[in-house]
Nucleic acid binder design. Structure first.
Lengths: 205, 205
DNA sequence: GACTATAGCAACCGACCGTTCGGACGCTAA
DNA sequence: TTAGCGTCCGAACGGTCGGTTGCTATAGTC
C-alpha cells in the first residue's frame, strides 16, 4: 500500500514487459527487440526481464500471443455479435482496415511484419506466425462461405479466391501507410472492399 | 595469369560480393546480412569485403541497386518492347507474377521484404527503398492511364485505385508463397489480375 | 629498376548480444 | 523465529557485430 506502488506492480511485471515489447517489436521487429533495450526502458536489469520468460525465443512467442490478443480485441471481438455471413464479413473487413487506419500497432500490422521477418527461417516463432495466419484465414473463409451459401455473394464466387484478394487489399493498405504514409490508401482499400463484397462479377471464376 | 585465377577475379570481386549479398539479404534481410558472414562465405577477410564499400550502409545501398537491376531485367526489360497501354500493362503484371512464381530471389520479393524491414526507421536505405517503390508505381500508373486513355479500360476507372489493388494482389501472392508455400496462390493472382484488367466494372468508382 | 596505387590479409577495437550465476530482498506460512 | 519462495539485481560469460589499423603482394607506370 505504499504510495510508490507502480503500474508494474499493480498489473504485474510480466504484463508490463509484454506491453512494452509489443510496441518495440512492432517497429523494430521481433528480432530487433533486444533484452538489453527492454531492460533499460523498463528500468530493470536484463536478468530481471529474462527471468520471466527463460529465453529470447520464449519472449518472442509471448509477445506474439500478446499481439494476438490485441488483434482479437480490435478486429474480432467487435464483430462477433454481428450476424454471420455477409454482414459479419463486411464488418470484419471494416474492422481490419480500421485497425490499420488507427495505427493500433505503431509499426503497422504486427503479423505481416513478423511474417516477412520469419518466413525465410525455421523454428517455433515462424510456426506460430504461420499458425496465426491460418487461423485468421480460416475465419475469413468461413464467413465468406456463409455469405455465398446465403446468396449474399454470387454462387460462382470462389471463397478462397476472394479471401486471397481481400488479404491483398489489406496488405497493400498496410504497405502504403507504413512506407509512404499516404492516407489516401484507406479510401482505396475501403472502396475496393466495397466493390468486392457488393455485386462483384469479377470474383466469379 | 596464374592457374588459381578465380571467378571473382574474372568478374570483379565487388560484383561477386554483391551477387552473394543479394542472395543472403533476400532471405535474412538487409540488416541480417553481416560482413563477417559474407567474408566467410566468400573466403575473404572482413576488411577485404568492407574495403569495396566503406560501410555497411553503403553495402546495403549497393545491394539494393543490384537487386533493382535484377528486378528490372526480370520484370521490366521483357515488357519494354510491347505496345504501351493495356498490352504492356497485362504483360507487366504477368512478368511480375512470374518473377515471384519462379523465385527469382530465394526470399521472395526483395523490395517488399526491404520495405517491411525499414519502414519504421529513417535513413538513406529507407529512402532508397521508398524511391524504388515510387518509381515502380509511377510506371504502373503510366501504363494504366494509357490503357484508360486508349479506351481499353472503362473511362470511370481510377488508375491509382487500380494500381493499389494490383499491388495488393502481388503482395498477397508473395506472402502466400513465402509463408505458406501454397502455389495455388499463383492461380488466384493470375485470375484476379485477369478480372481487374478485363471488363472490370468493380474498378469504377 | 624504382615508384605508386590497389586489393586483400590478420589482428584488433569497443559495443552489444543472449545467457548464466550467486545473492539480496520482501513476503508468507509454519 | 525460522524456513522457503518468487522477484530482481549486478557481474560476468563467450560470442558476434561494424569498423580500424598496419602490413604485404601484386600490377601498372615512369
Amino acid at each position: 500500500m505504499s504510495p510508490r506502488r507502480s503500474v508494474a506492480e499493480a498489473l504485474g511485471t510480466r504484463s508490463t514487459i509484454l506491453d512494452r515489447s509489443v510496441g518495440i517489436a512492432s517497429v523494430e521487429g521481433l528480432e530487433g527487440l533486444t533484452i538489453g533495450r527492454l531492460a533499460t526502458e523498463l528500468g530493470m536489469s536484463k536478468s530481471g526481464v529474462l527471468g520471466h520468460f527463460g529465453s529470447k525465443e520464449a519472449l518472442q512467442l509471448a509477445v506474439l500471443d500478446r499481439a494476438g490478443e490485441v488483434f482479437r480485441a480490435e478486429v474480432w471481438e467487435p464483430v462477433v455479435r454481428i450476424e454471420p455471413g455477409m454482414p459479419r464479413l463486411r464488418a470484419l473487413c471494416e474492422a481490419w482496415i480500421s485497425y490499420l487506419e488507427r495505427g493500433v500497432f505503431p509499426g503497422g500490422c504486427f503479423f505481416v511484419a513478423a511474417a516477412h521477418e520469419f518466413d525465410g527461417r525455421a523454428g517455433a516463432v515462424r510456426d506460430a506466425v504461420e499458425a496465426r495466419f491460418d487461423t485468421w484465414r480460416a475465419r475469413l473463409l468461413k464467413e465468406t462461405r456463409r455469405a455465398v451459401a446465403a446468396g449474399d455473394l454470387p454462387g460462382g464466387v470462389d471463397a478462397e479466391q476472394l479471401v486471397f484478394e481481400l488479404h491483398g487489399l489489406v496488405m497493400s493498405l498496410n504497405h502504403t501507410l507504413q512506407l509512404h504514409g499516404d492516407r489516401q490508401a484507406v479510401t482505396w482499400a475501403r472502396r475496393a472492399v466495397r466493390a468486392r463484397l457488393g455485386i462483384s462479377p469479377a470474383a466469379i471464376s
